[in-house]
């Protein structure tokens, strides 16, 4: 088995304007490594939504990317308020984002559904009051 490449990014929760910077860097990395454009797009979109969520709901967190030729795994971990009802949160259109976030173009209740749509496998682990960890897997073949 080939060795895993691992990259870590801190997602800054204080500044909405900079949200997405880790996804931009990951997109660049994946391009340099020669992954297919379709895979790169899926990873970037899903991770971007995750990053936006961490900024909106959890004051930031950690993003870890593990790559090998077969798959890319993105682990997004925050210490935010947690998700009370994951099934409900996964429904398109359900959102707990404040109004000021909607005026910025997000908070339409599409974040988690989009992450599921663009990944091959998605796991959400969350404990109220402790935080949320989302693992996204993207297969390259």
């Amino acid at each position: 088995m080939e060795e895993l490449l691992h990259y870590h990014f801190d997602v800054d929760g204080a500044n909405f304007a900079s949200a997405g910077e880790a996804s931009v860097q990951v997109k660049r990395l994946l391009r340099q490594m020669g992954f297919s454009p379709d895979l790169i797009r899926r990873v970037s979109i899903a991770m971007y939504e995750g990053e936006i969520n961490m900024v909106i709901h959890a004051n930031g967190g950690d993003a870890d990317i593990y790559m090998d030729p077969e798959q890319i795994r993105v682990v997004l971990k925050d210490h935010g308020p947690g998700i009370k009802d994951i099934a409900l949160a996964m429904q398109e259109g359900y959102s707990t984002a404040p109004d000021n976030i909607r005026s910025l173009g997000f908070g339409a209740g599409m974040g988690l559904p989009n992450m599921k749509r663009y990944s091959d496998d998605m796991t959400v682990e969350s404990t109220v009051g402790v935080g949320t960890t989302i693992t996204l897997v993207f297969r390259s073949v």
Binding site: F16, A17, G20, S23, R41, I45, Y48, I52, G105
Partner: peptide, 10 residues
């Protein structure tokens, strides 16, 4: 806002 550009970039 800057997120419009990031969205387009993605």
């Amino acid at each position: 806002n800057p997120q419009v550009i990031r969205t387009a970039h993605m």
